[in-house]
Amino acid sequence: MLDKLVLYMQYPFVRYALIVGVLIALCSSLLGVTLVLKRFSYIGDGLSHVAFGAISIAAVLNLSNDMILVMPVTIISAILLLRTGQNAKIKGDAAIAMISVGALAFGYLIMNIFSTSSNLTGDVCSTLFGSTSILTLTQKEVWLCIILSIAVVIIFILFYNKIFAVTFDEDFAKATGTKADAYNLLIAIVIAIIIVLAMNLVGSLLISALVIFPALSAMRIFRSFKMVTVFSAILSVICALLGIIISILAGTPVGSTIVAADVVAFAICCLIGAVTGGVRK
C-alpha cells in the first residue's frame, strides 16, 4: 500500500492534486466559522450554483481559461446576495434560492443545447461533484490556485480581528465606528474566490460541506474563536489529504471522499465534545 503511494507520488498530477487540495481545504475552512455564525452558509450554497452556471457558459463559449468569466460573475453575485440578504423586505433565503436554482437550471440547459461534447452527463457530473478534475490540473491552474490561496490566507490574517468584530456583533462594530459594511463586502468577495477555487476540488454541490463541516466540528470542541479557527483549518487540511490519498488508492471520486472524511471527523468531534463537555459540567 505504501509502495503504491510512493509510486503515485512520482506523478506530477498527483503532487499537484495534493498541493492544490491542501491549499483549498485550508482556505475554505478559514471563513467557515464566520459563514456559519453569520447565517451566511446559504450564500455559499447559492454562489456555488452561480459558479456552475458561469462554468457552463464558459464551456459553451469555448473559453480557454474559464476563470476569466467564472471569477467575476461569482464575485458580483456574492455582493448582490449580501445586499439582498441585508434587505429585510426581500427574504434573503428566497432570493438565494431563486438565484441558485435558476443558475443551476440555466447552466444545465445551456450545456445541453450548445455542448459539442460527446460525454455531456460526464461533464455535468464532474462540474457538480468535482469527480476527477483535480487530477487533470495543468501547471498553470496549479499556480493560479496557489497564488489565490496565499492571497486568501494573507487577507484573512490581516483582517482576522476585524472579521471577528464584525461576526461577533455587527451592531456594536458599526455603532462604535468600524466600517462593518466594507468588511462584509470583503468577506463576500473572499467567499466568492474560495468557492471558485473549491469547485476544482469537490465540485459545486459539495462546496458547502467543505466550508462548513470543519467549522462545525471545531465548534464542538473549542470555545474561543482563535482555537476554533486554527483547529478547523488543521482538520480541513487533514481531511483533504486523507480524502485525496484514499481516492487515489481506492479509485473513489475525490470530492465525495474528502467530504466523507469531513463527515467522519465531525462525528468524532461531536463525540469528543460530548465527553469533554460532560466532564466540564
Binding site: V33, L37, F222, R223, S224, F225
Partner: peptide, 12 residues
Amino acid sequence: VQKDFPASVKEI
C-alpha cells in the same frame, strides 16, 4: 446571534 458563538471573554 451571540448565543452559540465560540469566543473567549478576552477576545470579546
